[in-house]
Amino acid sequence: MLKSYEAIYENGQIKWLGEQPQVKSARIIVTILEETEAPLKRRTISPSIAGKGKTLGDIVSPIVDEQDWECLK
């Protein structure tokens, strides 16, 4: 069975854009797409951290009091 995965090849490295194949060894066929004027770069969240973020406190008000901020005036 054939399955497609999207990746970018850059400086000798493969950067997976989504799901990564779970194989130790495989025969592959590489298709090179012509680059457009502005190559599209999609940002995706790593599956290892997806859904693990937490909101601490109120998202409108800061957790730390303003007096405790280290701001330059």
Score class of each variant (00 low, 15 high):
residue 62 P to S: 08
residue 54 K to C: 01
residue 6 E to S: 15
residue 1 M to I: 01
residue 12 G to Q: 09
residue 41 K to E: 10
residue 2 L to C: 01
residue 40 L to I: 14
residue 59 I to W: 07
residue 1 M to K: 01
residue 60 V to G: 00
residue 69 W to P: 00
residue 18 G to I: 09
residue 32 I to S: 03
residue 3 K to N: 03
residue 3 K to Y: 00
residue 44 T to K: 14
residue 45 I to W: 14
residue 29 I to E: 13
residue 64 V to N: 07
residue 56 L to R: 10
residue 68 D to E: 08
residue 62 P to A: 03
residue 19 E to N: 13
residue 12 G to K: 09
residue 49 I to G: 02
residue 57 G to Y: 06
residue 22 Q to P: 01
residue 68 D to K: 10
residue 50 A to T: 03
residue 54 K to S: 10
residue 36 T to I: 02
residue 34 E to W: 03
residue 6 E to P: 01
residue 66 E to S: 06
residue 23 V to K: 13
residue 71 C to N: 03
residue 51 G to W: 01
residue 27 R to E: 10
residue 73 K to D: 04
residue 28 I to V: 15
residue 55 T to C: 04
residue 42 R to L: 15
residue 40 L to E: 14
residue 34 E to T: 04
residue 15 K to Q: 09
residue 26 A to L: 10
residue 27 R to L: 12
residue 44 T to A: 13
residue 72 L to Y: 03
residue 49 I to Y: 10
residue 65 D to W: 04
residue 60 V to W: 00
residue 27 R to A: 13
residue 28 I to N: 05
residue 5 Y to P: 01
residue 10 E to R: 14
residue 23 V to D: 04
residue 29 I to K: 14
residue 20 Q to C: 12
residue 33 L to A: 10
residue 15 K to D: 06
residue 14 I to G: 08
residue 73 K to F: 01
residue 1 M to P: 02
residue 29 I to N: 09
residue 34 E to Q: 11
residue 5 Y to I: 09
residue 30 V to H: 06
residue 41 K to I: 12
